Simulated scan of single mutants.
Amino acid sequence: MYLARLKKGISYAALTAIGIIMVFPYLWMFMTSVKAKDKLYSGGIFPDTFHFENYIRVFTDTKMLLYLWNSIYVSVIIIVFQILSAILAAYVFATMKKKWVQLCFVVILATYMLPSAVTYIPSFIIISKVNLLDTHLGYILSEAISIFAIFFLRQTFIQVPKEVVHAAKLDGAGHLKLIFTVYIPYAKNAIASLVLITFIYSYNNYMWPSLLIKSEENMFVTIGLRRLFMSQAGYGMDFPLAMAACAISLLPMFILLAVSNKKIINSMANLYVNK
């Protein structure tokens, strides 16, 4: 009994220590964002006076609101494309047992092993030939299909009970009805996980968008933050403003994580149990 309590206490202490280590960078970022410029190197994490006007200046002195809007709405469109295409492809690969279908799945999965940088040049050439450089549409089309999403949903779809599928077929359900009444409800937690993963990836993507997007009105938050750091945070000119912009840029991801947290945990638990 005593040994069990000791192990539990050590586990809680270790988790608390890890949590503090993980939270500290965000705490430092927030505390820096509410400091005055002349107090930045005064020492200590906590400021003498909280300058929340730095957050107001992010929207009045920069184009952060435009960058946020571009990143959010483009990420939402990409999520819709990736989830729909992944559901249809995963259904085919999970239900059709023909050799050529499974061979296609292996070939598609093999392309996931390629480094993303390898695809930059051919993708850039294709997008330039259709005159979609420096447009949101060009970036959306280049990210419309996710091999990871297809694989993730396929692994979830193959765990759907065969009895449920057979009963639905006896009721006259076709492929579309099976997808929307059996497979999607069964995989709702996995789909919620994919929504979060896709949003985080698209929202934080920097290298590929920086090659495509050049005009300021089309820039995403990652490119905008880099420009802000180059113009304002260089040599400590206005580092609190840059930190305030970083803190604001994290809000959409924190909100989405808070909303879908339980579904993500359930999805991962189901995959582990059924593994």
Rank of each mutant, 00 (worst) to 15 (best):
A89R: 01
S128H: 03
M230E: 12
S249N: 11
I248A: 03
Y186V: 03
V165T: 12
I145H: 01
V101Q: 05
Y67M: 00
I147D: 04
D38R: 12
C104P: 04
L194G: 10
V118Q: 14
L137W: 07
Y206M: 07
A90L: 10
N261R: 15
S193L: 11
I121W: 11
S42M: 01
M29N: 09
Y2P: 02
K214T: 07
L3R: 12
M113T: 13
M29R: 09
A187E: 02
L194C: 11
Q155F: 04
L15S: 14
P47K: 04
T135F: 09
P25F: 08
G19S: 07
E216S: 03
F151T: 02
A117S: 14
H166T: 12
Y91F: 11
I121S: 13
V23A: 13
P47E: 01
A244R: 08
L15A: 15
Y91K: 04
S142T: 08
C104E: 04
R57A: 13
P185C: 08
A36Q: 10
T111N: 00
Y235D: 14
H136A: 13
V58H: 04
I125C: 06
L141D: 04
Y272T: 12
N205T: 11
L250Q: 15
L256T: 00
M29D: 10
S142Q: 09
T198V: 08
Y186P: 01
V118H: 14
V221N: 01
D38I: 14
I191F: 02
I255Q: 11
L65A: 09
F59R: 01
G44S: 00
Y206G: 08
S142Y: 01
I200G: 01
N261D: 15
A190V: 06
G43E: 08
W28R: 10
I21V: 11
